[in-house]
Nucleic acid binder design. Structure first.
Length: 623
DNA sequence: CGGATAACCT
């Protein structure tokens, strides 16, 4: 809590107690006393009027003082003012803002004349705290009651739609908005954008955004967040730039959102650009922005910068601990992640996400005993029920350590329905340990859960190919054709001198293409001398573009590396990002390249970091 | 009575 907010709280409570000294409040046992016997009435002459309570209740509302409010309620209930419109309205307001919705609802139902404000605060209460569908049904009751929703009602009920992803209800409210002229209201607009964002309708959100010409920072941020939450981090970044060009200053929310977009792109120049943008706008010591930056630097490969930022936080909250622990886990630095977890336990209470992070760290480091111990710690000491993500980590951990039967056993006995993540971890473990039977079973489940993901088929196809089961390869190829499954096109990116270059497999479109291929050829010669033998015969190459035999040495990651080598000075670290898993053969090749060229090469593939150095990789050759 | 925000496994 900041110094300012402590001061603020103290002042409010002083005001409240001052007022209560003027108007003593009954203990709750007086509720049952007949009105003539209550000390209040005897001690005041003349009796208090409803007006006396107005400012008292307002103070309760301002400081969310629920219990004093309840006592006042009891008082004027006895005095017969309970359904006085002004007092009842304030009380419902107090109950609604202090998370006492059943009380608010009870009183609300008894008030004969319900004004728009009453409906609004109640709908707001349910929209924010749930049950969300209650907010929507209240909205309909309000229409039946004959009141017209205003620019407060509409954002509140839209918030409920957003929480429920109720797109049908959301669209019909949008129609109401258009018919009744709220189209250009920024509050209604931001709520509509958010509702469409949470329902995955990016185009509809953009349409709302375009309709409003006079935009404020929240409207911009809502649209920036829509892109970020729906897998368009690049759009999110460029919209933020457009916002800045329009002279709109970012808020904390804008920055947190756009920093996370740059984390998703995992491209340091963009991240640094946003970091500077935040700095110039005075957010250099904002902990929430800093936490987003910790995540961004870790995802962009600079875990040391992330750690430095973490150490300089004002206050280390759970989210910040989770971000830095996840950062270490992502880079395979399991021991550091677990050390930090031990430190964390002394300062903050780990939550379920913390355990996802540490279990993932164990899995990366093949720390079987530690992982089991942490799982027990979570369930027994912290009373956290395992979610599907914890099971995924455990299956991944057991599977990586060769305990495939135990992993399968865990899946059969887990308390939640295994999802594609769980079966994906199982399939991957089978691949590492060459268990074709269990892999077939896992793929069967995966086809039920996510039939369009080509990566799953590819893993089993490669396993068949490695064990010479060509009829299995053929069967899968046919299955993919029948289901019309699109192959993913592999792409790698590299940053050189603050510019980003993209490469597809077999790409010859780059202006330096000749030099890139010459460098690859030169390296190949040196690699063969060092003992490299391309692993082409045993791998199934026809499923992904990425893995065609003729292109085995021109995979996108190798092109990016070759380009990096000829475009940077000796010794510079290279950072490559790839949209799919790194292939087996490239993994071997890059180990050689790191040794031959004496470079540190980092490849961030679709789900982890590979740090190549002196001919070795941080992933320990299983991924 | 308002609106937008970060950490999560394959």
């Amino acid at each position: 809590m900041s110094f300012y907010s402590i001061q603020k709280t103290r002042q409010t409570s002083t005001t409240i107690s001052f007022l209560f000294n003027l108007f003593p409040v009954f203990p709750s046992s007086y509720h049952s006393l007949p009105i003539q016997q209550t000390p209040f009435v005897h001690s005041f002459s003349p009796s208090p009027t409803p007006h006396c309570y107005t400012s008292l209740l307002q103070s309760c509302i301002d400081s969310k003082a629920l219990n004093p409010g309840k006592q006042l309620h009891a008082q004027f209930f006895h005095l017969g003012f309970a359904y006085n419109e002004v007092l009842a309205t304030k009380l419902v307001h107090l109950y609604a803002v202090s998370n006492s919705l059943p009380n608010a609802r009870n009183l609300f139902d008894k008030i004969p004349k319900r004004n728009l404000f009453l409906w609004n605060v109640l709908i707001r209460g349910y929209a924010w705290n749930g049950p969300h569908d209650t907010a929507i049904s209240l909205y309909h009751s309000m229409l039946d009651y004959g009141l017209k929703p205003d620019n407060f009602t509409l954002p509140f009920v839209l918030k409920a739609c957003s929480a429920l992803s109720a797109i049908g209800e959301g669209r019909s409210i949008h129609e109401y908005v258009i018919k009744n002229g709220w189209e250009r209201d920024v509050f209604v607009g931001a709520a509509l954008i958010d509702m469409y964002a949470k329902c995955g309708c990016v185009m509809d959100a953009r349409h709302v955004f375009n309709t409003i010409v006079v935009r404020d920072v929240v409207l911009w941020t809502s649209m920036v967040a829509t892109y970020s939450q729906n897998g368009h981090p690049d759009e999110s970044l460029s919209l933020c730039r457009e916002m800045a060009a329009n002279g709109v200053r970012p808020t904390e929310a804008t920055l947190v959102t756009v920093v996370s977009s740059s984390a998703d792109i995992a491209c340091l120049p963009y991240g640094r650009e946003i970091h500077g943008f935040g700095w110039r706008n005075g957010f250099q010591s904002n902990d929430r922005v800093k936490t987003a930056l910790i995540d961004m630097y870790a995802k962009c490969g600079s875990v040391k910068v992330a750690r430095a930022l973490f150490e300089r936080l004002w206050e280390k909250r759970v989210v910040s601990w989770n971000a830095i622990i996840t950062g270490y886990a992502m880079h395979g630095l399991s021991v550091e992640a677990l050390d930090l977890f031990e430190k964390m336990r002394k300062e903050a209470r780990p939550d379920n996400i913390t355990f996802v992070s540490v279990l993932a760290a164990c899995s990366r480091g093949r720390l079987l005993d530690e992982g089991r111990a942490l799982y027990n710690l979570m369930v027994k000491d912290y009373g956290i029920n395992p979610t599907v993500q914890h099971y995924t980590c455990m299956v991944d951990l057991l599977g990586h350590c060769g305990q495939l039967d135990e992993a399968y056993d865990l899946i059969r006995h887990m308390s939640v329905k295994p999802d594609s993540g769980v079966w994906g971890a199982m399939l991957n473990s089978c691949k590492i340990h060459g268990n074709v039977e269990l892999a077939e079973l896992a793929l069967e489940k995966l086809i039920e859960l996510e039939p369009d993901d080509s990566g799953n088929y590819v893993i089993l196809a490669n396993m068949y190919a490695q064990s010479g089961k060509w009829e299995g390869v053929e069967k899968l190829r046919q299955l993919m054709t029948d289901k019309g499954i699109k192959k993913n096109i592999a792409c790698s990116w590299i940053e050189v001198k603050n510019k980003v270059y993209a490469f597809l497999a077999g790409d010859v479109s780059h202006s330096n293409s000749d030099a890139i291929y010459a460098e690859l050829k030169r390296l190949e010669g040196l690699m063969h001398e060092a003992g490299y033998a391309p692993d082409t015969g045993s791998v199934y190459h026809d499923v992904e573009e990425d893995e065609k035999t003729s292109m085995v040495c021109s995979h996108s990651e190798r092109l990016a590396i070759a380009f990096g080598l000829i475009s940077t000075s000796p010794g510079t670290r290279l950072l490559i990002t790839k949209n799919l898993r790194i292939c087996e053969d490239c993994h071997v090749a890059i180990k050689f390249i790191s040794k031959i060229t004496e470079r540190e090469i980092t490849v961030r593939d679709v789900n982890r970091y590979h740090h190549f150095k002196h001919g070795m990789c941080s992933c320990g050759d299983h991924w």
